[in-house]
Design a protein around this nucleic acid. Structure first.
Length: 230
DNA sequence: AAGGCGGGGAC
DNA sequence: GTCCCAGCCTT
């Protein structure tokens, strides 16, 4: 039964193995540095939407040199923001949203970012970024549940029922249980890095995967193929 | 539930 | 050329 809620021991194994993997193979990005402002953290999440982390990395430093705070974005020319964002795509949409957000946040971002109710009322902040703010700014144990984390969890523990991951109770509960850990941030990053480097969408590297012995996908799909020598 | 946004890298 | 990427809004 792939949709059964996993036992606590299963989650513990998953957490422990991935954190160990992360210490050796985890990626480094500037937005993971300590001491970033809530401005930088929030902008980073918007830049990362539907965009590879390595791609965002290329313009990240430059972007904050040009736009160091909400005020500068709020008063900038929209076309210039678009040009700055062009190399990472979705630039027209993102530039407009960033500027509107900046005009709102410029007043009092510390208040707006302090509670989930406030966050949910802000345009362009959905479930993912809401969780990211709670995790990275408020210090809560919340999952960065995107298509990549979903893919890892579903391959390992079993597939969700609903197409839209935001409404799938099983996947939501599972993700929350997984990152309910003293080092929730590292665990989140570990899963995202693992998704990008090992448990990839098209050709996952199962043969060298540290989770293969306990992975549903490996045990029910990959190993059977190997047995048949396909 | 489905469509649109988008350049860039991997294959 | 095709697929995918730290989503979200509109219809």
């Amino acid at each position: 039964m792939p949709n059964m809620e996993p036992q606590a021991i299963d989650i513990k194994v998953f957490q422990t193995i991935l954190l160990t993997w992360f210490k050796e193979h985890g990626r480094w990005f500037p937005w993971r540095e300590s001491g970033l402002s809530s401005y930088q953290l929030l902008i980073a999440e918007i830049l990362l939407q539907r965009t590879k982390a390595a791609t965002v990395d290329k313009i990240f430093t430059h972007f904050f040199n040009v736009y160091p705070n909400w005020k500068v974005i709020a008063s900038a020319k929209l076309e210039e923001i678009e040009n700055t964002l062009k190399p990472i795509g979705l630039h027209k949409q993102r530039a407009e949203r960033l500027q509107k957000l900046a005009q709102k946040m410029n007043l009092n971002d510390s208040v707006l970012l302090s509670s989930r109710a406030e966050l949910d009322a802000i345009p362009f902040i959905g479930q993912y970024i809401g969780n990211a703010v709670e995790l990275l700014i408020q210090g809560k144990n919340k999952p960065l549940l995107d298509v990549n984390m979903a893919r890892v969890l579903e391959r390992y523990f079993g597939h969700r029922k609903l197409k839209d991951l935001r409404y799938d109770k099983y996947l939501q509960a599972l993700a929350h249980d997984i990152v309910d850990h003293p080092d929730s941030i590292s665990l989140n990053w570990a899963i995202l890095d693992f998704a990008a480097l090992v448990c990839q969408s098209r050709v996952p590297k199962c043969s060298t995967c540290v989770l293969q012995q306990t992975c549903t996908y490996y045990l029910t799909v990959v190993e059977i193929k190997n047995f048949r020598n396909e």
